[in-house]
């Protein structure tokens, strides 16, 4: 076989593998849409937002209220971000502008280790340690609060690490300029470092939001799984991901199609977040050039 023939073969082989890799997401979207089709065709879509209850398996009076679960996803995510963002960003400021280098390296290693803890382990800890605590404070324990705290702690190391990286990327010349003018830490942090690091920090928080919305294990074990609007943080909730995880095992026909519809919502939501991030990054790069 001639050399150019073999190179053409190589090129087309690699191209096929690349096409295969690129088509996985299309395949997933195709299956989601195909799975959701029966529900979409039967005109269930408006009922997802108008119905009062979630009892899709009921023979007599099926009800398809997805909205409380979307609300559950959003509330849990908001609570998680309210915990993770302030702690993560303030911790990153401390890491960059106060901690001596040796301790800073340890802090970073510890956070990297914690970022790798599996979500099922967080969920398990929430169920065995946190839920009983909250139960003593206000029953039932399995609640919006528990899910928010567990999820917040889970994404906290990632928020802290991305914020650290963003602060580290602030050009040294800027910090030297600030030091040369005798600026203190508050002015250096708030007027120089944070404005320069803001795109990176915001990107980290958005990624954390996407992760929180899509997370299943850390919430399903502690949220109580009641598909209603919570009246307080001590009420049980049921995010979309938890619904899929709990019902996929036994759902059939139209019920199953609904779960695919819910999954489609999830993919569109997290895809939109990540896509927006990529768009923002592209725009920033275009602005720099």
């Amino acid at each position: 076989m001639s050399r150019s023939r073999s190179d053409i073969l190589l090129r087309s082989g690699l191209g096929t593998l690349a096409g295969l890799s690129g088509s996985v997401v299309l395949l997933i979207l195709f299956f989601l849409v195909a799975g959701a089709m029966p529900a979409l065709r039967d005109g269930v879509l408006p009922r997802l937002f108008l119905d009062e209850f979630w009892q899709p398996g009921s023979q007599r009076d099926p009800q398809y209220a997805l909205l409380p679960m979307l609300a559950g996803s959003i509330l849990v995510t908001v609570l998680a971000i309210l915990i993770a963002a302030p702690l993560g960003i303030a911790g990153a400021i401390f890491h960059r502008f106060y901690l001596p280098p040796r301790f800073a390296a340890w802090n970073e290693h510890a956070l990297e280790l914690l970022a790798g803890v599996p979500s099922v382990v967080f969920g398990f800890w929430g169920l065995t340690v946190l839920v009983p605590l909250i139960n003593r404070l206000h029953p039932p324990g399995q609640s919006l609060l528990a899910a928010g705290i567990v999820l917040g702690l889970m994404i906290l190391p990632t928020v802290a690490l991305t914020s650290q990286a963003a602060l580290r990327a602030v050009p040294g010349s800027q910090l030297f300029a600030a030091a040369g003018l005798g600026l203190g830490r508050v002015a250096t942090v708030f007027h120089i470092a944070l404005p320069a690091a803001r795109p990176g920090i915001v990107a980290g928080v958005i990624l954390a939001v996407a992760r929180a919305v899509g997370e299943t294990m850390a919430v399903v074990m502690v949220c109580g799984n009641i598909a209603k609007y919570p009246q307080s943080v001590f009420d049980s909730v049921r995010p979309v991901t938890a619904t899929i995880a709990l019902e996929m095992g036994y759902a059939t026909s139209s019920h199953k199609a609904l779960l695919f519809t819910a999954a489609l919502f999830l993919v569109l939501l997290s895809g939109a977040l990540v896509g927006w991030l990529a768009f923002r990054k592209g725009k920033n790069e275009a602005a720099v050039n």
């Binding site: 088509s23 899509g214 299943t216 991901t241 996929m248 993919v267 895809g271 990540v274």
Partner: peptide, 18 residues
């Protein structure tokens, strides 16, 4: 290709399960 691979990275794990 890179766009769809990055999009794949954003898919929640429960959806992979489904």
């Amino acid at each position: 290709i890179t766009g769809s691979v990055d999009l794949l990275a954003s898919v929640p794990s429960i959806v992979f399960g489904l």
